[in-house]
């Protein structure tokens, strides 16, 4: 019977993925992508990967949604300024594209086919008995945490997690580079709407508490630093939308310190224990649980700050030309 749910979810996910790529209007694509995130989260739940489901829910529902809405606004203003009849132009452009871009499409199709073949072969080769699951679970008592996913992420494969934190920082750096440094200016928009004010006042503690809960529960169940970080980052985005940009209100060096704190502490700790004869990112067994919790907390704060900064800076980059116009 449960195959019905799985089948429906699979069809829904694939249909939504295709439609979000092929939809003729951008706003359709954006919201279909949001629905795709939901279907994907449900699919992860059915596959038994609750950790991934929480991450997918947090990133698709929260962070990407807001970023896409922002992008949508940009596109809508540029297109409606330039052309009155967008539909006609879009359709004629797509007709032209079909003729001129046949070869790239063919190459893309061949590449996709090859990729599918390779992934089919990979599925074929999944070792019986669950691969490395047994090895990971046998070392679980030594990792300092009770949840196997957290043990793998922060102990057995800590190097990967460290790099992942770095990737988010790298994305932020790219925005800094393209957007310039004069980002920490305070926008004039202040939340005068009492409803908005109340919503922000209500949701800030809820988001903070639930993020902290997810962070702590990561020790013994699904949850952890990245999920908590998105929830905490949502606080920053909410405050920014309410006219209280966090990065404009704190001194710049504090912001920079918060941003690199997670990455820096992780690396410093790795080197400190390395000097004591351990390998990189190897914890002493007695303190492993506590150290993992500290690393996770700092990483969550850093990632949350990075997500906030990414959203805030993308917004600022667009405001800039308008400010120049009014100054002129």
């Amino acid at each position: 019977m449960s195959i019905l749910i799985d089948g429906l979810l699979a069809i829904l996910a694939i249909y939504l993925a295709l439609q979000s790529l092929l939809a003729p209007r951008l706003s359709q694509s954006v919201f279909l992508f949001f629905a795709f995130g939901l279907a994907l989260a449900l699919a992860w739940v059915r596959l038994g990967a609750v950790d991934v489901a929480i991450t997918e829910a947090a990133i698709a529902a929260g962070f990407l949604g807001v970023l896409f809405l922002d992008a949508l606004r940009d596109f809508s203003s540029t297109i409606s300024e330039k052309h009155n009849n967008t539909e006609a132009i879009q359709s004629s452009a797509s007709r032209k594209k079909i003729k001129t871009f046949l070869l790239p499409r063919l190459a893309f199709g061949v590449g996709l086919g090859l990729f599918l073949l390779i992934s089919l072969e990979a599925i074929w080769q999944i070792p019986q008995g669950g691969g490395l699951t047994a090895a990971a679970e046998s070392m679980l008592p030594e990792s300092g945490v009770e949840h196997p996913v957290t043990a793998v992420l922060l102990n057995f494969r800590a190097y990967d997690t460290w790099l992942e934190i770095g990737v988010i920082l790298l994305g932020l750096l790219a925005i800094f580079v393209t957007g310039g440094i004069k980002i920490y200016t305070k926008p004039d928009v202040v939340a005068k709407d009492p409803l908005l004010r109340q919503v922000i006042l209500f949701f800030t503690p809820v988001l903070f508490l639930f993020g902290a809960f997810l962070l702590y529960i990561g020790k013994s169940g699904p949850g952890g630093a990245f999920q908590a970080a998105v929830l905490w980052g949502a606080i920053g985005i909410l405050l920014h939308l309410g006219g209280k940009p966090v990065f404009a209100m704190i001194p710049r060096w504090v912001g920079q310190l918060v941003l690199i704190m997670g990455l820096g502490f992780f690396l410093l700790m790795g080197f400190v224990f390395m000097s004591g004869g351990a390998t990189l990112f190897e914890y002493p067994k007695a303190y492993a649980g506590t150290l993992i919790l500290i690393v996770e907390t700092l990483a969550a704060i850093s990632i949350a700050a990075a997500l906030t900064a990414i959203y805030a800076n993308l917004n600022q980059m667009k405001e800039e030309p308008k400010e120049n116009e009014s100054a002129n």
Partner: peptide, 26 residues
């Protein structure tokens, strides 16, 4: 599996972000 409740809460505390995002940005 009670941990699924965490997924549900995550979805719904973050849903407000989209609404406020749309409201403020547009």
């Amino acid at each position: 599996e009670l941990t699924l409740l965490n997924v549900a809460i995550t979805f719904n505390v973050l849903a407000i972000l989209l609404v406020i995002g749309l409201f403020q940005v547009w």
